[in-house]
Amino acid sequence: DNFKARATRHIFLIRHSQYNSDGCLDKDRTLTELGREQAELTGCRLASLGIKFDKIVHSSMTRAIETTDIISKYLPGVNRISTDLLREGAPIEPDPPVSEWKPEARQYYEDGARIEAAFRNFIHRADAKQEEDSYEIFVCHANVIRYIVCRALQFPPEGWLRMSLNNGSITHLVIRPSGRVALRTLGDSGFMPPEKITRT
């Protein structure tokens, strides 16, 4: 009994907001003005939930850092942790395949192992020593979030590209002490006015 989980983990996966995809280097791919507005709306929404968040883990890519900078303003005192594990990539070859997106095979080996490591590292039931329910925010990327959702629900991971996520949207997973997983919301962006919703 000492090794049994007792708490529930709430995982909030946030897709970064709209960014300038023209830049060649990651540092040049900064948020657009609309992207900054979207992040404000997401931050406002998260704050309005009235939850005491435990931490914000974010991808080390520029667009995720900038999204986190804005969201953090609405969640004062919540610790931020940067990780390379959550960087964008090609998690697994999608089925059915798509013609407009064909990464090299080696990309799946590199990114796939890393994104799977991110899943195992961050998505699991609470440790036995965790006494209270936790609420954690992960600011990352569409492919990473879609893969994590497939893995967490034990759905075939190669189906990840059949889902679509808006910028700044909120995906909420609940992991019970029994290990049961519920997807409470997928890509919620209903808190944004329609003209500010994008998927770039």
Partner: peptide, 20 residues
């Protein structure tokens, strides 16, 4: 292929592999 994905829920899904 990661995970069971055979339609049967694996309640030990997060205990089978090291976390990282």
């Amino acid at each position: 292929r990661p995970g069971p994905c055979n339609g049967v829920w694996d309640s030990n899904w997060d205990k089978r592999e090291p976390r990282s």
